[in-house]
Design a protein around this nucleic acid. Structure first.
Length: 214
DNA sequence: AGCAAGATTAGC
DNA sequence: CTAATCTTGCTA
């Protein structure tokens, strides 16, 4: 069953956890590829400086303010796209970033889409930029519904426990525990406990070394 | 109009 | 550890 639009209209954190274990599917002329969601991050409507919507509505982020169940595809660092699903009812800005997939179908297709990097299977979908590439998600998918073909989410299964950590790579709101993942899964982008800083955060730390980031 | 920063990745 | 790479949004 394809997840219906009302699956996404709840609170962002709730939807983020509910998305773990669900299946992301993309049907293209080249074939079908799919993967199970194993890692996500929540971006909240309120008190979340890390959310793109935190500084108000702009042409780029306006889709997060719109109705739930739509894709927010964001171009980052000049090389990579991020795939988010819009949450909350219309007018309330919230989104969930998909950060890790466990490949199910279309492995060949995924490898093909990422061949130029000669990635091994584990490196195929264990990161937001990677899975977007492996699934063949593109700029055009921005603002498209994810409760309709060709790019949509299906009901999956979750047996694993949900782990929680802070979000990865943020300069603002980096201390909030809004990253959720399936414990023990091999397709998690960054292992819990590993410290990693975004270029922006490094710069920030450098300019004020005394100001320790909690 | 110009510039800095960014929800990352791969390669040294 | 750091360059790559380019769009967006802010500042002048």
């Amino acid at each position: 069953m394809i997840l219906s639009q009302n699956f996404y209209q709840g609170s962002t954190q709730k939807v983020a956890k509910a998305l773990l274990g669900q299946i992301l599917v993309h049907e293209t002329p080249h074939g079908l590829s799919s993967g199970r969601i194993v890692e996500v991050e929540a971006y909240l409507p309120k008190n979340d400086p890390g959310c793109h919507a935190a500084r108000g509505k702009t042409p780029r982020n306006s889709v997060i303010f719109g109705p739930p169940g739509h894709a927010y595809v964001y171009f980052c660092y000049g090389n990579h796209f991020m795939f988010n699903v819009v949450t909350e009812k219309e007018g309330v800005p919230g989104a969930v970033l998909i950060r890790g997939l466990e490949p199910i179908k279309g492995l060949e297709l995924m490898v093909q889409r990422r061949t130029r990097f000669e990635s091994h299977e584990l490196g195929l979908t264990n990161g937001p930029g990677k899975l977007v590439q492996a699934m063949g998600i593109q700029r055009e998918h921005n603002r498209k519904p994810v409760f309709k073909k060709p790019l949509y989410l299906m009901e999956g299964e979750r047996k694993e426990k949900i782990g929680v950590t802070t979000r990865i790579g943020l300069t603002e709101g980096a201390d909030l525990p809004l990253r959720f993942y399936l414990e023990g899964n091999g397709y998690i982008s960054v292992k819990p406990g590993a410290d990693r800083f975004s270029p922006g955060m490094k710069k920030k730390l450098k300019s004020s070394p005394l100001k320790k980031a909690v």
